[in-house]
């Protein structure tokens, strides 16, 4: 990370090195925010990501309402009960909605174009946010045509897994 920003020790200021603003005709002060974080995953999400590393998509079931939620949850958002029953979910599901992202911005997690979608995995009671891919996305009109025919998708795993959400590379049409 060190190469992505530099510290101006004199002005006590951070500067992100791979980003420039367009020239302005009035006087401005560049002041980038660079902050380190160390997020605690807690037991539930640690186990969920361990599962991804092993090529498994894990959810948890609420013992009260019986709903299966993915990503796995510590507690049911409706019943507020602990969700301690772990379920391995099928890696296929249907698309609830999708959006083609075809513009760039700073800090984007993926090079556009890409499709972000809500995917309802079989046996789950909610949908999961992830990418749709595995075919040519360069022409928006063709993408629209193709997506009209797609209803079912299947997880494609990344070659290298790090125990994070990108261990699933994307979902591809079945």
């Amino acid at each position: 990370m060190a190469e992505k920003y530099k510290v101006d020790k004199d002005l006590v200021r951070m500067e992100i090195v791979d980003f420039t603003f367009p020239e302005k005709e009035y006087r401005t002060s560049r002041h980038d925010t660079v902050l380190p974080y160390n997020w605690a995953l807690g037991p539930t999400w640690t186990r969920f990501f361990d599962g991804l590393k092993e090529g498994k998509i894990l959810g948890t079931r609420c013992k009260k309402c019986n709903k299966v939620l993915v990503p796995a949850r510590t507690f049911c958002p409706i019943c507020y009960e602990d969700m301690q029953e772990w379920i391995e979910l099928p890696q296929e599901g249907s698309i609830e909605t999708w959006c083609l992202v075809n513009y760039k911005y700073y800090g984007q997690v993926k090079e556009p174009p890409y499709i972000i979608a809500q995917i309802h995995l079989d046996k789950a009671d909610c949908s999961l946010t992830h990418f749709i891919g595995g075919f040519n996305l360069s022409d928006p009109d063709k993408v629209r045509g193709k997506m009209k025919t797609v209803s079912r998708v299947k997880a494609v795993w990344s070659k290298e897994k790090h125990g994070d959400i990108y261990d699933i590379a994307h979902f591809k049409p079945v």
Binding site: M1, K4, Y5, I16, F19, F21, K24, Y26, R27, T28, S29, R30, H31, D32, T33, V34, L35, P36, Y37, N38, W39, A40, L41, G42, P43, T46, F49, Y106, G107, G163, D164
Partner: peptide
């Protein structure tokens, strides 16, 4: 339980 290290980076340019 694990922790995940991350860096939050957002550029700003403020008009004086």
């Amino acid at each position: 339980p694990r922790k995940v290290a991350a860096m939050g980076m957002v550029p700003y340019e403020m008009a004086l």
